[in-house]
Amino acid sequence: MLGYLTKRLVSLLASLFVASVVIFSVVEVVPGDPAAFMLGMNARPDTIAALRAELGLDGSVVERYLAWVGGMMRGDFGISYTYRTPVADMIADRLWVSLPLALFALTLTVVIAIPAGLFAASRRGRAGDYSIVGATQIGIAVPNFWFAMILILIFAIQLRWFSAGGFPGWQDGFWTGLKALVLPAVALALPQAAILTRVMRSSLIEVLGEDFMRTARAKGLSSGAAIWRHGLRNALIPVLTIIGLQFAFLLAGGIIIEQVFALPGLGRLVFQAISQRDLIVVESVVMLLVFAVIMTNFLVDLAYVAVDPRLRRRA
């Protein structure tokens, strides 16, 4: 077990290192000098040089890379070229929208998909199964941002149950904030729930064909009890992988949905930064997203150990 964990940990650190090098190099190849760009056409060379020093743009590539990584480890993501404020503060503000949104959507996804997949698999080949499989076919085909627009059309414009966009912040209370995230979370979650339902269904169907399910029936468990006590946990192993991938997708996919609902999250931040060529912000947000994906995969690996005793080797 310790061996497995060390291996995962080493691979986590290696992934983070290589990812940071890739991101840093991509941004390095951008032509132009951010300092000159920020100060405009008529800036004096010595002003530009001073700003370069302030932004940490002096020094060799390796020095700048180390400064960037070292800064991030201390929570210092640098200074925004456009707003001249610390990037870390900007990201922190936006994370309060993006992270709850992703978690909300993930919760919805799991809460919908696991029972639906369970239901379909246990009624394989019957009407209930066919309708769920049909619904997931359509669910997978729906682009989430289009679904978001339709939700706005129905629930905001027609029914006026929710506002069409914007975010009041958390200071007015948890429920006010959460209510503003309901439509975005549903828009994000439903297509993902369709995918997860299919994974859950096929995983469970595969497990149902295993010999130990026959053993369970031969013990005297009813078919429902056999699924519940022996099928479910085995079927969840591949489902975990997909949930991990989906969290990453929801975090990144939130970027588009934030556009539809005009939510002040990471997505808005990164699109503004792109149009203003505020590369340090883009670089930081991308690194943060990649960090989240890699960490999620690591957590999924840990969850495997909890679910699957075959990974817990005795010393």
Partner: peptide, 13 residues
């Protein structure tokens, strides 16, 4: 670890 959208953001930037 790089979802398509993240790659797109990097490339576009």
């Amino acid at each position: 670890a790089f979802p398509a959208l993240v790659i797109a953001i990097l490339i576009t930037a």
